[in-house]
Design a binder for these strands. Structure first.
Lengths: 135, 135
DNA sequence: ACGTATCTTGACGTTAACGTCAAGGGGCCC
DNA sequence: GGGCCCCTTGACGTTAACGTCAAGATACGT
């Protein structure tokens, strides 16, 4: 709620989000984050933290940093030109479709795997059965 | 249904699954696929094709080839030792949990993005409104 | 003034997952 | 038997996403 919550050092960020300094600097170089500077030291804002959360989430879905960067633009829509905004919007809409498709496929894969696991249980059961009989 | 369906050349595989020869050879080197040989030429079986589908699906979820390889073992459970099978089973159970968690997170992210898109629509609408007024 | 802790900018190293040649064998057709 | 295709095995190149030093600025406690 105070300045401590508003601006965080690189170390605080690392502790809070379980990333390395190198990673944060890398994301800045790739224009995914835009920390302020106090002298030469980086200070990460609430906005940077929100973006970082989205980045990490995107990575868990297997998105590339470049794909994520395009999506991030949708989340700070204020400072964009009209045509650029339209483009951003369309990219996000496409990405949404991808994500929905991915979720459907994932649901399917989960079902498949569950079935395989039921199979596995049976096989394991019958194997220990045989083993019991042999003793 | 004939031999043509049973065994496929590397070229046929590439056309069928939209991958390169290099990729298939790479997957074999990493022990994800085990094509038969006719002389020195590779012949891919139905089993290889099933595995390849699972590989490509896993990749779309952002899994590494190594993670995928461990899962694949569950799908050809027949030829395993009992202890090894138990281990395979546990790995698959863990992976299932990961996938369920990922799906939940994805559902959440989809909701977030949908909301952002509604926002975006509004902003775009109001911007073209302003533009109309200015003309 | 000194140590130590945290930060900075290069710059080179690493891993995964392939891409991209180079050199050569085997089959088939005219 | 020359040409053409498809296949093979090395072996080196590439890209993304960082890791890992090296060398130096800045600040803080004693």
């Amino acid at each position: 709620m105070t300045d401590i919550d508003e601006l965080m050092s690189i170390r605080q960020m690392c502790d809070a989000y379980d990333v390395t300094p190198r990673t944060l600097r890398f994301y800045e170089a790739k224009e995914l984050l835009f920390p302020q500077r106090e002298g030469q030291k980086r200070l990460f804002t609430k906005r940077d933290r929100a973006r970082l959360k989205l980045i990490l989430r995107g990575k868990r879905f297997g998105f590339s940093l470049e794909e994520i960067r395009q999506l991030l633009d949708l989340y700070h829509i204020g400072d964009q030109q009209q045509t650029q905004l339209q483009r951003t919007y369309e990219i996000a809409r496409d990405r949404l479709r991808d994500m929905e498709a991915q979720r459907d496929e994932l649901t399917e894969a989960i079902e498949d795997l569950r079935e395989q696991l039921r199979w596995g249980e049976k096989v394991i059961a019958s194997m220990s059965q045989e083993k019991d009989a042999a003793e």
